[in-house]
Design a binder for these strands. Structure first.
Lengths: 141, 141
DNA sequence: CTTGATGCAAACTCTTTGCAACCAA
DNA sequence: TTGGTTGCAAAGAGTTTGCATCAAG
């Protein structure tokens, strides 16, 4: 599925639209729920297949939040990292740069040909630190 | 499960022994296979429950390799990061330090109370880059 | 005795796959 | 017409849970 011989069908377009409109980091099930609004007849298998296809072709990122929950998808495909709240589960995009010498040292020391890294920070988000009325219970934001 | 009011039963001890003897990063199923050698009567549910208990009490780390596969466990609970081979799936421990000012800046800018981070590098391990006879196909190392 | 731990089996969640119908080139 | 795509349903992997039994304090 890494070739470019694939069609942007209406279903795939709808999935891509959902991803690009999302500011959170939806699971496949959440993408499915949202896609059904624009494409009522679509089935979950098509959403899973479309997400895998988009991810394989660089139009989406697959993301594991490390909490054992379902894979999440990110329509923001530029290089970035994540802040994950350990209380409400929300994930925010952040942009930071690892010192390039750190990658070089690691390549030299390990012998790995490193082509990417995943970095996520876990902690309490501002909302969950300073509850206005009660701790957040939602699952994305 | 975060209290210290728990007993190190023979089954839990056996699970812990397996983790501490492991140099790879076994899945729960792999831990189960190994634990059965010392504790033949043990059931998979006990292994899952023991792993969760040990992780909650800081005696094991849960680890997602970001490839959609099962959760892995690490008996090395000191702060470290991982190199993950995108070809054979093996994971190696590495020790590196993020510049502390990076964490400070991030805390200041985001408002998050960060208490940990997960960092993994993905690429080809030396074995898979320079195959001796043929590409590696094993799943841990 | 009383509470927690175990093993088994069933249930559950998330995801993938087989397949016939369908659609675009 | 030919091969890729879809939707459905079934299957599959990984993990959790209900429950009766068992063991430790």
């Amino acid at each position: 599925m890494l070739d470019s011989e694939w069609r942007l069908t209406p279903q795939r377009r709808a999935v891509l639209d959902v991803l690009q409109a999302a500011t959170d980091h939806p699971t496949a099930a959440e993408v499915f729920e949202r896609v059904k609004i624009a494409s009522p007849g679509i089935g979950p298998a098509t959403v899973y297949r479309s997400l895998a296809l988009l991810a394989a072709n660089g139009l989406a990122l697959e993301l594991s939040l490390g909490d054992g929950s379902a894979t999440r998808y990110d329509g923001n495909v530029s290089r970035h990292d994540h802040l994950v709240c350990t209380s409400c589960g929300s994930a925010s995009d952040i942009q930071l740069v690892l010192p390039s010498q750190l990658l070089e040292q690691l390549t030299d020391a390990s012998g790995y040909a490193i082509n990417r890294y995943d970095l996520q920070f876990h902690g309490l988000c501002p909302n969950c630190q300073y509850p206005t009325t009660h701790p957040q219970e939602e699952m994305n934001g």
